[in-house]
């Protein structure tokens, strides 16, 4: 049971990919991509978790108190910002593709066959 929480990461990754592959709408596909991304959040935060430890903020607890791993939290924060903006770029591409072709289904968008 001690490892079951980690498996959330594998589940989110797989289920997000399922969404990406079966999606009928480009915007939906991009949202599914962010489900895949949340898998990495779950993995990083679970790895940094310490049972019974405090949050890594030493404003009201003395320095040296056992705290959870701040590095993975910082990595996750980086990851959030990176992907939010990449999603914005993807959505801009999807909006434009819809304006130019009137299509949003990724299966119809394969106009550059090859």
């Amino acid at each position: 049971m001690t490892h079951l929480a980690y498996c959330l990461a594998a589940w989110l990754f797989a289920v997000g990919l399922y969404g990406v592959v079966t999606s009928r709408n480009m915007v939906h596909l991009i949202i599914c991509l962010s489900v895949v991304q949340s898998s990495t959040y779950a993995l990083l935060l679970a790895i940094g978790y310490r049972a019974g430890a405090a949050a890594p903020v030493f404003a009201d607890i003395p320095s040296g108190t056992p705290a959870v791993d701040p590095v993975v939290q910082a990595l996750m924060l980086t990851d959030v910002v990176v992907e939010v903006t990449i999603m914005a770029l993807l959505l801009a591409l999807a909006v434009l593709a819809y304006e130019r072709t009137g299509k949003l289904d990724p299966n119809d968008l394969g106009m550059i066959r090859g």
């Binding site: 990919l17 990406v20 079966t22 968008l109 394969g110």
Partner: peptide, 10 residues
Amino acid sequence: HSGIIPDYVT
């Protein structure tokens, strides 16, 4: 090489 994203991801 269909140009279709779901194919590529598969």
